[in-house]
């Protein structure tokens, strides 16, 4: 499916706009040509990548992974666009933890344990078995910037970490980028437009004579 509002540019047109003629073509341009072709033909019609079906977490156990899924979806839920669970933020979190320095990974696992401990204390069940209302209530405690309670310190710190990872994992995902940010990943532009608002000090948009108007 082509990206709405973005015409598929022909390879010839794209290369013309990039100023790559048929004449002297430096060696380095060969790889660009291939990329441009890919961008013109493949990217707008991109087939969404298919997540691996047999994925298993490397840094987290199954319960920790379920907890991360629940937490990330609470932070960025499905609304009119997909949420963190649908874009598999948990897999990104696992990859980061697998790469992290051991002290950081340990602190994160300790945070997951803190969430479960507090959930048990408040609701008598682990976090993933609590009701959505209970989960929201717990996160409200640890997400409050005003919360300076010593007993909640580890939880507040952990929430900051899982929230930051959820933000990165969500907005950099293929779906998050396209559906939430409306960024189609285009990386070839023939020109850059600047400010065209005289009220900001910019130049009004140029009105080209009809004969010089470029065909789109």
């Amino acid at each position: 499916m082509a990206t709405p509002g973005r015409p598929v540019v022909s390879r010839r047109e794209l290369l013309r706009r990039l100023g790559i003629g048929v004449a002297a073509t430096p060696v380095w341009v060969a790889s660009l040509t291939a990329l441009a072709e890919q961008q013109a033909h493949v990217h707008p019609a991109a087939v969404p990548s298919v997540p691996a079906a047999n994925w298993v977490p490397k840094a987290l156990d199954a319960h920790q992974n379920e907890t991360v899924i629940a937490l990330s979806e609470l932070i960025i839920p499905q609304t009119d666009t997909p949420g963190a669970k649908a874009v598999l933020v948990n897999r990104f979190v696992d990859a980061v933890l697998d790469d992290a320095d051991e002290a950081d990974a340990r602190a994160f696992r300790r945070g997951l344990a803190w969430i479960d401990a507090r959930s048990s204390e408040l609701f008598g069940v682990a976090f993933v078995r609590a009701t959505p209302e209970q989960q929201t209530a717990l996160l409200t405690i640890v997400s409050s910037p005003a919360n300076r309670t010593l007993a909640d310190r580890d939880g507040v710190e952990f929430f900051g970490a899982i929230k930051a990872l959820t933000i990165i994992g969500y907005y950099t995902s293929e779906v998050g980028m396209r559906e939430e940010l409306h960024d189609d990943g285009q990386i070839f532009f023939a020109s850059l437009e600047g400010c065209t608002h005289p009220e900001h000090g910019g130049n009004a948009p140029a009105v080209l004579p009809a004969t010089k108007k470029r065909k789109s």
């Binding site: 990039l18 100023g19 002297a24 430096p26 341009v29 790889s31 441009a36 532009f189």
Partner: peptide, 22 residues
């Protein structure tokens, strides 16, 4: 704009990772 056989920038953005176009 193109100069000495090198194409104009295509504004992909992150130059510091290398430029395939030169």
């Amino acid at each position: 704009k193109a100069l000495n056989g090198r194409p104009a920038c295509h504004y992909c953005g992150p130059c510091g990772r290398g430029c395939s176009a030169g």
